[in-house]
Each structure stands twice: as C-alpha cells, then as structure tokens.
C-alpha cells in the first residue's frame, strides 16, 4: 500500500478525528472511525441488512422443514439468469468503485461516465430479472403457488426494489457529477451512493447461492 490509500479516506475533513497511523503497515495506511460517505447511509444500510438477514434466516429454516418442496422447485429456477445477474451486479459495483476513484482524482466527467455504466448494468439486471418473472407469471406461478415461491418472489422482489432504489440514487449522483457538482476534496455524495450500491450487491451475493444454488 502506498500513498494511494489516502484518497479512499479523502472524505475525511479536518473535523473528523483520525487515529495514529498504524506503524505495522508498510506505509501510512490510516485507520479511521468513519466509513466512506455519509454516516446516515450506514445506519440505513445496517437497518436494511437486518431486514434481509431475517428473510435469509427464515428462508433457511423454513426450507429445513419443507425440504422436498424447496429442492423440487429450486431446480425449476433458471440458474443461468441468476449467474448473469450476479456477474452483472459485481461488475456494476466495480464500476462504482472506479467512479469513486475517478472523483478522488478530481475527474468528475470520468466519474459520471463510470456511474452511468453502473446504472446501465443495473438496468440489465432488472431486465434479466424481469424476463425471469415474466416466465414464472406466464406459468401462473405467484406468491400463493407454494411456500417456496412465496419466499423466492418476496426475497427477489424486495431486492429488485432495492436495485431500483439504488439506481435512483446513482442517477441523482451521476447527474450532479456531470454538472461538476463534486470535486477531489468534496464528494461525500458519490461515496454515499457507492456504499448503498455495494450493499445491494452484497445482499445479492448471499441471495443468489442461497435461493438458486444451495440444496
């Protein structure tokens, strides 16, 4: 790690306290008590993660008591769509990382371009998921079909709404970045949006194996 570590922390302003640099690290990597972006979004992220955690755990235990049903219907899911969507979200998250890096160097235009790329991938995610839903609904499958689909649709749709929410946030930030609303020293907004988007990604990374793969 070199000097480069500090840009990640550049949201740190004089008002925030930093702890003494950790001498064990190769250079001046600095630990801090504050995550990137606005602390408020982190409280929100924690709350949102809790809702998902509850859903995941209830899914896992309900599955345990309905093993055959869950195994049978899980196999009817199109795991290729799940795979594509996982790769899409990971890449989208990566784009957002690049956007944050770009604004840390003061390159607002590049930042906004990466953000638009991330948003486009979000759109792709919605499209693939939409085709999947379309397939289910055309077979007459709904929330009431059976316990597995109750979970599958609730979980994925709740996540689906979060993707939309994340895209709205990213769009607001991308537009502001395009107008030159952020710079190398002040870009909390970008980091806030990025943190939220990574959370949407993180949730999917657990959701995908849990619902599509594990049996």
């Amino acid at each position: 790690m070199g000097e480069s570590d500090s840009p990640v922390l550049s949201q740190q302003k004089a008002t925030l306290s930093m702890t003494v640099p950790d001498s064990n690290r190769t250079s001046c990597a600095i630990t801090t008590d504050y995550p990137p972006g606005d602390v408020a979004i982190w409280i929100f992220i924690l709350a949102e993660l809790s809702v998902f955690a509850l859903l995941f755990v209830v899914y896992a235990f309900t599955r345990h008591y309905n093993l055959e049903l869950f195994d049978l219907h899980q196999q009817q899911l199109d795991s290729r769509s799940g795979l594509i969507n996982t790769l899409t979200l990971i890449t989208s998250s990566y784009f957002v990382v690049r956007a944050v890096a770009a604004i840390q160097y003061g390159n607002a235009r590049l930042c906004s371009r990466w953000l638009w790329g991330a948003i486009a991938l979000g759109l792709l995610f919605l499209l693939v998921k939409g085709v999947e839903y379309q397939h289910h609904f055309s077979l007459g499958i709904g929330l009431s079909t059976n316990l597995f689909y109750t979970f599958y649709i609730s979980l994925t749709f709740f996540h689906f709404m979060h993707v939309i929410m994340g895209m709205v946030i990213l769009t607001v930030v991308a537009l502001k970045a395009g107008r030159g609303g952020y710079c190398a020293t002040e870009h909390t907004g970008v980091e806030t949006a990025a943190s939220y988007w990574h959370m949407v990604d993180l949730v999917w990374l657990i959701l995908f194996p849990l619902v599509y793969v594990m049996r």
């Binding site: 709350a47 859903l55 209830v58 929330l143 109750t150 979970f151 609730s154």
Partner: peptide, 18 residues
C-alpha cells in the same frame, strides 16, 4: 393469502428499527 404470514411477520418485526 397465506404468504402474509411471512411478509407480515418479517417486515413488522423490523418496524421497531425506525
């Protein structure tokens, strides 16, 4: 429908958060 047992339980269990 029965799925409200799940949705109602999970989401309202989170209502204390705000």
């Amino acid at each position: 429908p029965e799925y409200w047992q799940l949705l109602g339980s999970v989401f309202s269990a989170m209502e204390p958060i705000p």
